[in-house]
């Protein structure tokens, strides 16, 4: 790892100022992706701005039916939150199965959403739950936020403060994890709000997380695993690598979607 300067701001303003003052600085959340990447010298930020000590980025709140989760909330905190286990158990369960216990004690929701790894779990939940990403400067709908592989709508120096969404009537996540990396080879999050159903897929798309419109239509008409029998998942635009062929991933998407609906 190349040398770097560590900073520990206590407010969002201070963090943004540090990032703006140092063009090669990077925000550091749980560090479970960034630190391994720096160790391999694939990233060499001049400065690291630790976001874990900013009070405004912490905590899980319920305002009516609206759930607000601070960006620096760890996977273990999301998994263990009684409020979430009651209002959106699908998201708590998703967090409980990210990586391993040690990673979950450090890794954060905001870090995962900012990194937008094409095999990460949280992006599918944000997209399916129609979440809003609240940043240091604006609010971004999840549909406009995830723009490609490791790409998001975030500008330089803009940091995620929180995410929020309406508690769904039904929601669940099912993934087929790569047994070595534990990242999703296909993960599907399904969510139902009233008549609207959203289905988002991670781990499989060659351009990152995406919504599966045919499944959304089928489940809007009939919320049951059997409703997905008639849906054909195309292998076009799916990742094809040594872990799984595009056709296998297409098959996994359908199986995971059925499991998610059954679990919701």
């Amino acid at each position: 790892m190349y040398e770097t300067n560590y900073h520990r701001p206590s407010t969002v303003e201070e963090a943004v100022a540090l990032l703006s003052a140092n063009p090669d600085a990077k925000p550091l959340a749980g560090g479970q992706t960034l630190i391994p990447t720096m160790k391999q010298r694939l990233a060499a930020p001049s400065d690291l701005v630790d976001l874990r000590h900013i009070e405004a980025l912490r905590g899980i709140k319920l305002e009516g039916r609206r759930i607000i989760i601070g960006a620096a909330t760890t996977h273990a905190e999301v998994a263990g939150s009684e409020a979430l286990q009651s209002a959106c158990p699908g998201l708590a369960s998703l967090a409980a199965h990210i990586g391993d216990p040690h990673v979950r004690h450090m890794g954060t929701l905001g870090g995962s959403v900012a990194n937008n790894d094409p095999a990460a779990d949280y992006p599918s939940a944000m997209l399916a739950l129609d979440a809003t990403i609240h940043t240091s400067t604006r609010d971004i709908k999840a549909d406009d936020y995830f723009t490609g592989l490791f790409e998001t709508a975030l500008d330089e120096g803009e940091i995620i403060v929180a995410v929020s969404f309406e508690a769904p009537e039904k929601a669940a996540y099912a993934k087929f994890a790569n047994p070595a990396s534990l990242y999703a080879m296909a993960g599907v999050f399904v969510a139902r709000h009233g008549a609207g159903v959203r289905v988002a897929v991670t781990g499989a798309g060659s351009d990152g997380v995406f919504r599966q419109g045919d499944m959304e239509a089928a489940l809007s008409a009939n919320w049951s695993p059997a409703a997905l029998d008639s849906v054909t998942v195309s292998a076009d635009d799916l990742m094809d690598d040594l872990h799984a062929s595009a056709a296998y991933r297409a098959s996994l998407i359908k199986t995971m979607a059925k499991r998610a609906v059954a679990a919701a």
Binding site: I35, P101, H102, H105
Partner: peptide
Amino acid sequence: AVKSCTML
């Protein structure tokens, strides 16, 4: 519990 090789 955390991985001390993945924390500064």
